[in-house]
Structure formats: C-alpha cells, structure tokens
Write a protein that binds this DNA or RNA. Structure first.
Lengths: 183, 183
DNA sequence: TGTCATCCATACACCAGCGTATGGAAGCGA
DNA sequence: TCGCTTCCATACGCTGGTGTATGGATGACA
C-alpha cells in the first residue's frame, strides 16, 4: 500500500471547515482541492461525487456532536446543577463541534429533508439530556421542559443574536440567564 | 409613461421569496426572471447587477421588520404584559417579516460584514423594545435583560430547534416559557 | 399620430464548477 | 525488480449562471 498523501479524512476535515465558514454551498470540490494544495483528481477517487462528501460531513458531525460532549460531562460526575454548569465548557473546540458548523447545518436542514432528519435526531438527543438534568431539581415536568428549551435556545441565541446590550458583554447576559435557570 | 409590466417591486418581492427559501445564494437573476415569466432583460434595466438587488432586499427587510411590528403593538395599547402577549401575533405575514427571511439573513450576516451591521441594528432595536417592556414589571435591570434575551432566543429557537418534545407540541413548549417570562 | 420612456427578448462572451477519462508517479510487498 | 494499490495532474465536455449589446414592443401623452 502506498502512502495516502491526501486521505479521505483530510477532505472531510477541509469540507467541514468550508461548511462552517460558508454553508453547504461553499463546499466546492475545486476550491477544496486548492486549499489542500492538490488537484481534484484524488477527490473523485475517494468520493465519486460531491453529494457523497456532503453526506459524510453530516455523518462526522452527527457522530461527534452529541455523545462526545455528553460523555465528557457525565464522566466528571457531580450533581445535576454542576453538570449543567460544566456543559458549555464541555464542548471541545473541534471542526465538527464548532458552533458555526451547527448553525450552517441548521440552515441547510431548512431546505433538505434528509438533513432535517439528522438534525431532529441530534436536537432530540440534546433536549433529552438537558431535560433529564433539569428534572433532577425542578418541581414538575413543565418546569423542566421550559428550562431545557430556554437553555438550548439561549445557547443558540447567544451566537445568533447580534444586538448591542448597552454596556453588558454577551457572555454576561448569557450568565444572567444561566444563573436563573439553575435556581 | 408606459405601464411597468414587471416593475422594481416585483423583482424585490420575488427576490425575498428566494432569499427566504434558499438563502442569498439562491437569489439568482435567471431563475428569478423565469419565476416572473419574463427574461432577465428587464432585470438589468432596473438593477444593473445582482449585488444591487441583494442590497435592496436588505433595505426592504430592515424597513419592514422592526418599526411596523412595534407600531402595531403600541397602537393597540394595554400594559406591558398585554403588549408582550400580543407581540408574537403582531408579526403580520409578509414576505419581509417571514421568519425564514430572518433566519436566512442571520446566516448571511455570518459571512458578510455589511449584512452583519444591518442585523446588529435590527436586533438592537428589537432587544431595546423587549427590554423596555420587561422593565415595566421586573425588579431590576438584570432581570429585565435576562428575560428579554430569553424571549428573543426562544422565539428564534422555536423555529430553529428540531427536537421532538415527546408528546408536547412546539407551541406548547413556547407557551410554557412565555408564561414564566410574564410572571 | 408621433414621440418618448419603459420594459422585454435574444444572442453573445465569459467564467466557475462538476464529473470523466487517461496517463502517470510513488511506495510497498513479493 | 516487478506489479499492485493508491493517489495526483491534466485536459476535456458540459451546465448554469453573470453581465452586455442591441433591437424591438407597448402604452402614455402631447
């Protein structure tokens, strides 16, 4: 076997980078090849076509983005509040777990039903986990549901909403909400 | 003056539709012309180039999306809680106020600084209005800020998060959060 | 009725990107 | 050293889009 100069994984990694930066439309074979310093010849040996790569990007994302984070939080123990407090930091910076990848896929899901289905699986898994943590100290199911939804929304909103908070930093605002959720 | 068969406004309207459905990359001159049942000849008479249209789409959105909603809520009176309760329904269904336009522009802003600046203006205006309403019955500034951010985030999140709520409809969950925000 | 502003059709040059075909090059194992 | 697998370069045809040029068509108004 000869050495793989630009193996599958390299293409996927570069593809995820492009996806995070510019959405699925920015994942183009020839620019990807250029970024990697090779021609597109090798790409079509690995993948056949562009669609195949896009599918594998989603596979990689779906694999990394939930279980890895949850396992990380769970492995360090503590009660529900402590685990929730650790959640935001448990998202290790990787190409797949980049929030921008999340946002790009979320937008993509709006126009592609197969992407929407994957997102549904991932979001359901995340909400289930959040709900289970809040349920540990909330009076009833409604309260846990409301707090889980709020936590998820504010996590996303913090990266999407561009408002000026007049003196407060975005992280301070997130912290204000977070404190109230953990009461 | 001869009759405008396909005047500026028609192109903008169709452009907003395409933007809402598929993001800025989906706003293409030739498909737009086809949707309108004409050739692209007239387009370049009106706009010069594609960039100009994209700019005008943003103009139209920025103009309609904040003041019109706020004026509508304000015109009907009531105390702060009543106004907040009416807010979701005050968003009249138009091409510019379509939530999908909002989401598309939000994604677009991530890769175009000029778009980001417009979004910053719009979001700041919205947050200012929300904050002012919550401040009417909240104990302190921190509380109002936290609730405004939560309201905004959950409004967006409700359209972005694809999780299955196990029996609850998405609107029920939103309502659970909303009730708590108005306490 | 003629003129002018407004809008549209058509044809064209051009470019970016997809996918294909083909001929290597480079290293590993026998 | 030979052959095989793995990867890359290059050239090509094709599609779908941008923007330009030009010659109408159509209707309001004088």
């Amino acid at each position: 076997m000869a050495q793989a100069r630009t193996p599958r994984g390299k293409w996927i990694e570069e593809g995820l980078r492009a996806l995070a930066a510019g959405g699925p439309d920015a994942v183009r074979v020839e620019p990807l090849a250029q970024s990697l310093g090779v021609s597109k010849g090798g790409f079509y040996w690995h993948f056949g076509d562009r669609e195949t790569l896009l599918g594998e990007l989603l596979d990689a994302w779906e694999r990394d983005v939930t279980e890895q984070v949850i396992e990380r939080v769970e492995s360090e123990g503590g009660d529900a509040r402590e685990r929730l407090r650790r959640l935001p930091e448990a998202i290790v910076p990787k190409v797949t777990t980049d929030i921008r990848t999340d946002l790009a896929i979320r937008e993509w899901a709006r126009r592609d039903e197969r992407v929407a289905e994957r997102l549904r699986r991932v979001d359901t898994r995340r909400m289930d986990y959040l709900r289970s943590l809040f349920a540990a100290f909330c009076a009833d199911d409604d309260e846990a549901e409301a707090r889980a939804m709020t936590a998820f929304s504010v996590w996303l909103g913090g990266h999407l909403i561009a408002a000026d908070h007049h003196g407060r930093a975005p992280e301070e605002v997130r912290e204000l909400v977070w404190q109230r959720l953990l009461r």
